[in-house]
């Protein structure tokens, strides 16, 4: 049952307006922290999620508050309001930091199957040993578009598209795997996802672009592949093929 009085009164209650103002202030403050290049990247990523959670907070608070009569505690009592704020905070934090990455990963994994190529997997294991990092799971996404990306969570995952593997020879595929391994080691997949996530949810994202850091990470991942392979031939030809695909696709 909807508590219409509560719902309408929400916008005229100075306490609630104050709570929303504080939430927006936290969102802006966390955005300023995202902009600070002197902070470690990982910490800036936390502020991305705090920023999104703070932006989500007023909406969740309003939705929960509108249905407050269903909680059978009334709208005006102090304690239920405190509980409501707490619950809103938890839901906002879950949406802002846990749910979105999990939904993203689940969506991508659904259309993917584990890579069965033993030679490529053997190469990956050897490189992970050298880097002293956990061997990531490699999933093949069923799409002809040549794409590769990684995600470093509890268990790191590298996604390669079937279209990419179609285009690349063995050495080029190894170069791409090395590139993605470096991203996992740097934790830059989280940075990339956070940037995407912030652009998706925050109207203020334009003020705090992470493009500079992302470009740096890309260059570092390429350099790592070149150093490990002792040549830039493979990573460059892989990039040329991928760019060629998208250029031809757009032009024709």
């Amino acid at each position: 049952m909807m508590c219409s009085e509560c719902a309408l009164g929400f916008f005229f209650d100075p306490v609630k307006i104050g709570i929303i103002a504080v939430s927006l202030f936290v969102a802006i403050l966390s955005l300023c922290m995202v902009l600070r290049r002197d902070l470690p990247v990982q910490r800036r990523v936390y502020f991305v999620y705090l920023h999104v959670a703070a932006l989500v907070f007023p909406f969740v608070y309003y939705l929960l508050f509108s249905g407050c009569s269903a909680l059978a505690s009334g709208c005006s009592r102090f304690l239920p309001t405190v509980y409501l704020i707490g619950l809103t905070g938890v839901i906002s934090a879950l949406v802002g930091s846990v749910a979105a990455p999990l939904i993203f990963l689940y969506g991508k994994s659904r259309s993917a199957s584990a890579l069965q190529d033993t030679r490529l997997l053997g190469f990956l294991e050897a490189e992970c040993r050298a880097l002293a990092i956990r061997v990531p799971k490699v999933l093949v996404v069923d799409t002809a578009r040549p794409v590769a990306f990684s995600f470093s969570g509890l268990r790191p995952v590298i996604f390669l598209s079937a279209g990419l593997l179609d285009l690349l020879d063995r050495k080029e595929s190894e170069a791409v795997l090395l590139h993605e391994l470096m991203h996992i080691r740097q934790g830059s997949s989280l940075l990339r996802f956070s940037s995407f996530f912030m652009r998706l949810f925050s109207p203020l994202a334009g003020f705090a672009s992470l493009r500079h850091e992302l470009n740096n990470d890309e260059a570092a991942a390429d350099t790592f592949a070149i150093l490990r392979q002792g040549t830039d031939v493979h990573i460059l030809s892989a990039k040329q093929k991928v760019n060629g695909y998208f250029e031809f696709s757009e032009a024709s």
């Binding site: 002809a144 578009r145 279209g163 285009l167 093929k241 060629g244 695909y245 024709s252």
Partner: peptide
Amino acid sequence: VALSSVAVILDRLH
């Protein structure tokens, strides 16, 4: 023709 162009065309036919 480039390999990537053939891949684009096959995807389009698909």
